[in-house]
């Protein structure tokens, strides 16, 4: 495992102490609308199933990252962190991730920003650039060359 998966989850919450009380799922905004999205089930699977099997069989991208489940859990299991751990694992294995994320990674390495600068329409369908609004051009990071090198290293 690399730097952060180790470091960012120094104490990956212990799923074995989960009561299966469903508090996480009962408060989950995604679970409210999507029957298959059940945070407590991800935790249960995490306990009993090979991680490789979970990430190849389950759709784990419907978490809104509202982090209510972390605050609701009486056992400090943090289902959202378990789900994020699985998402990281998918990315590390080179399996497909939602396209929007790939775009953002590309953009950040290229320009330092996650999104390309846009012209935006107002209520009267008039379009404006940053310059039109007096905000000036988007500022490039002054150390973009070095930053790019670092980010490619961390990719």
């Amino acid at each position: 495992m690399t730097l952060i998966v180790e470091g960012y989850f120094p104490e990956l919450p212990n799923p074995n102490v989960c009561y299966n009380c469903f508090r996480c799922t009962s408060g989950c905004p995604s679970a409210f609308f999507i029957e298959e999205f059940r945070p407590h089930r991800f935790v249960a699977k995490f306990k009993w199933t090979e991680l490789e099997e979970i990430i190849s069989k389950e759709f784990i991208w419907d978490c809104s990252k509202c982090f209510k489940c972390i605050d609701l859990c009486p056992q400090e299991v943090s289902p959202a962190v378990v789900i994020e751990y699985l998402q990281i694992l998918v990315a590390k294995r080179g399996k497909p991730i939602p396209k929007a994320y790939e775009e953002m990674i590309k953009n950040i390495i290229e320009s330092g920003y996650a999104f390309p600068v846009q012209e935006v329409s107002d209520r009267d369908f008039e379009t404006f650039t940053r310059e039109d609004l007096g905000l000036g051009p988007l500022r490039k990071p002054s150390t973009i060359t070095q930053l790019r090198k670092i980010l490619v290293k961390l990719k």
Binding site: I4, Y8, A91, I105
Partner: peptide
């Protein structure tokens, strides 16, 4: 990109 590239995020 925190849940895809945690090293880059940090």
């Amino acid at each position: 990109i925190r849940s895809i590239k945690p090293e880059m995020w940090l």
